[in-house]
Design a protein around this nucleic acid. Structure first.
Lengths: 338, 338
DNA sequence: TTGTAGGCGTTATCAA
DNA sequence: TTGATAACGCCTACAA
C-alpha cells in the first residue's frame, strides 16, 4: 500500500551487513559464499521481500532469461498447446516466455520479432521458415538463438514435421478408399509454408495416382471454421463436385463437414472429409474426423529444449523431425457408397 | 553471422553526428527534434539496424512496456482466446505480453507472479481473486497495475463475469425443462473461485426450486474431457442417476456427453447436459451443447484496456462486469421424454 | 533545438 | 571468502 521505493540489492546488503557484491553472489552463485553469510543474506532478503530487478540484471549480465515466441495466433488449439508445453519446459529452467502473434502477416511478424529482440530475449521461437529477406537479416544481426517450428530451414535449428507427407497421407487415404475426384480447402498459401507443403503433398499423391488437382478443386480460405464452410460450399456448387475433401487444417475440415450437413447431406455418405492436425475437437465432432496427427506438444517441448541447449552452449544447429500419422475415424468412407 | 557487437545508441549518435541524447529523443519524442536532424538520425539508425535495448531502457526509465499475464493454462480455448485479444489490444499501444501458467496450483501462481515482477512488468493480469495472503502481499508490495479477470475483488480492478449467475442460468434452464434430479460435474474447487461460484449458483437455483444438491450429485474432476467422462460415469453408477448434468466448463459437459454415448445411451434422451463457457467446439459436437456464453475475448480486451488506462494515469480501480447468457442448443430436452 | 552529465540496479573484474 | 569499482545502455533533468 505504502509507496515504498522498491527494495534493491543495496538495501539487502546493508541489512545483512555485507557488500552488494556478496548479495549478488548469494543469489547467483550461492556456492561461492560462506554458509553463515549466505544464511544472513537470505534472511534479510526474505525479510525485506527483495525481488531482483530483471532490467538491471539483464543489462549487466547480457542475458534476460527470456525466450520470445512468435506465432500466427494464440487463439488456436495448435499454437496454444505448443506454447503451453514450451513454457512448461522453459520454466523448468527459469526462463520465461514472451509471446507475440501476427495473424499470418509477414510484416507484422517482422515487427513482432523486432519488438521481442528489443526486449532482449535470449532466444526466439518462430513458426515456419518462410519470411522476407529483411526479416532474416534482422534475425542474423540479432545474435540470439533461434528455433523454427513446423517447417524448418537449414540455416537455423528447427523442430519440424513433414507437412508434405501430411498432405500425402490424407490424399492417399482417400485414394485408397476409391475416391478419384478430391478437393482441397486450404489456408491462404502466401506466407504459410505449412499450408503450401500440405497442398503440395496432396498434389503429389494425386499425381502419383495418375490424377490431377485442377484449380477449381482447390479453395484458399481463412483458417477458420467459416472458411471451411465457404470452401466446401464452392466445391459443392461445381458441376461435378468432388467426392472427398481435404482440409489444410482440422478446423477447415470441420467447417466442410458442417457445410455438408447444413445442406441435408451426410458425411461421409455424400462426402468424405479428412483433416490435418488432429486437434482435440476433431475426435468429438460428428462424425469423428479422420485426420493426420501432428505431435504439437512435442514440437513445443523440443523447441524449448533446443533453445535451452543452444543457450547453454551444448550442441549447435539441429533439425529434428517428429513423426506424424494418419488417424482413421468416421468422416471418410469408400467412394460411391452413396 | 559475424559477431558484430550489437549496435547501440552511441553508435547511431556518432554516425548521425549528434549527441546520444538527441538520438534518444528522436526515438521517444520525435516532436522535440528538428525534422532535418530527425531524418538524419533515423537514416543512420536504419542503416545500422539499430534496435534499442529494452533492458537499459527499462532500467533508466523505470518502465518495461511489458504486461504479465498469469493464467491456469495456455492450453485452453478460453484462456488462449482471452490472451490473444489482450495481446492484440496491448500491441496497439506497444506493450508486450509476458505469459506464465500455473496449472491451477496456488504456489505455482505465486512463483509465476514473482518471476514476472522480477522481469519488471508494468502490469499484471491474473485470473480469479482467490489466492493466499502471501501472494496478495507480493502484489501489494510490487506497485504494479493489476487486473483480475473472470472473478474479481474490490481491492483491485477487475473484469468479471457473474459466475454464480452462470450456474443459476444452467440450472434454471434444466429446471424449466422439468428436471428434478440434476447433477454437477465441476473442476477442483480449491483455488478456483470460478468453479466455486458456478456450483453455488447451481445450488442456489435448485434450492429456490425446493430441491437439494446432495454430495453424491456433485463430482469434482480435472478440467478436461476425460474428467467429464469420469464424473458422468460415477453419476450413471448411482441407484437413481440424475436426468440432467451440468458441466462446470464446456469441456466437462462434452465429456459427459461422450460418456453417455459410449454406453449406448443418447443425449438428450437419456440425459440432458448443459455446459458453461460456450467454447467454439461446443456448437459443433453432437448434439450441439446447450451452454452459458461468456464473452471471453472481451474479457481479454477489457483487461488490457483497463491496465493501459491505469498505467496512463487515467481512471483508478474499476470493476467491469460483462454480460452472459444461456445459449440453448440440442443437448438438453424435457425431462421424462425418455 | 541540442548537448552534458549523472544515475537506474546488477554483474563482474580485481584486489585484498 | 569478501569488498571496491567499473561497466552495462539508455533516459532525463539541466544547461547551453
Amino acid at each position: 500500500m505504502a509507496f515504498n521505493r522498491r527494495i534493491k540489492l543495496l538495501d539487502v546488503a546493508r541489512a545483512a551487513g555485507v557488500s552488494p557484491a556478496t548479495v549478488s553472489r548469494a543469489i547467483a552463485q550461492p556456492e561461492l559464499v560462506n554458509s553463515a553469510t549466505l544464511a544472513r543474506v537470505r534472511l534479510s532478503a526474505a525479510r525485506l521481500g527483495y525481488v531482483p530487478g530483471g532490467a538491471a540484471r539483464a543489462l549487466a549480465s547480457g542475458r534476460s532469461m527470456t525466450i520470445g515466441a512468435v506465432v500466427p495466433t494464440l487463439d488456436s488449439p495448435i499454437f496454444a498447446r505448443a506454447l503451453q508445453s514450451m513454457q512448461t519446459e522453459l520454466s523448468r529452467h527459469s526462463f520465461q516466455l514472451l509471446v507475440a502473434s501476427h495473424d499470418y502477416n509477414a510484416s507484422a511478424e517482422a515487427e513482432a520479432i523486432r519488438i521481442l529482440l528489443a526486449r532482449g530475449v535470449d532466444g526466439l521461437m518462430l513458426v515456419g521458415a518462410e519470411r522476407p529477406a529483411a526479416t532474416w537479416q534482422l534475425l542474423e544481426g540479432a545474435g540470439v538463438a533461434v528455433v523454427l517450428t513446423w517447417c524448418g530451414d537449414d540455416r537455423v535449428s528447427s523442430i519440424i514435421v513433414d507437412n508434405e507427407k501430411a498432405g500425402r497421407l490424407a490424399a492417399q487415404h482417400l485414394l485408397n478408399l476409391g475416391h478419384r475426384r478430391i478437393g482441397a480447402v486450404v489456408g491462404a498459401l502466401q506466407f504459410n509454408d505449412r499450408q503450401k507443403a500440405r497442398l503440395a503433398g496432396i498434389r503429389a499423391a494425386l499425381r502419383a495416382a495418375g490424377l490431377d488437382l485442377p484449380d477449381w478443386l482447390v479453395s484458399e480460405q481463412p483458417l477458420t471454421l467459416a472458411g471451411g464452410r465457404t470452401g466446401c460450399s464452392s466445391m459443392l456448387g461445381l458441376e461435378q463436385p468432388p467426392t472427398a475433401l481435404i482440409g489444410g487444417i482440422d478446423m477447415l475440415a470441420i467447417g466442410c463437414i458442417e457445410e455438408v450437413h447444413s445442406r441435408g447431406l451426410t458425411v461421409p455418405k455424400a462426402m468424405s472429409v479428412v483433416g490435418i492436425d488432429n486437434i482435440e475437437m476433431s475426435a468429438h465432432i460428428f462424425p469423428p474426423l479422420t485426420t493426420v496427427h501432428l505431435p504439437v506438444a512435442q514440437i513445443g517441448e523440443a523447441g524449448a529444449r533446443c533453445l535451452l541447449d543452444e543457450l547453454a552452449g551444448r550442441g549447435g544447429k539441429s533439425v529434428i523431425e517428429l513423426p506424424i500419422e494418419l488417424v482413421s475415424r468416421k468422416s471418410s468412407a469408400k467412394a460411391g457408397s452413396k
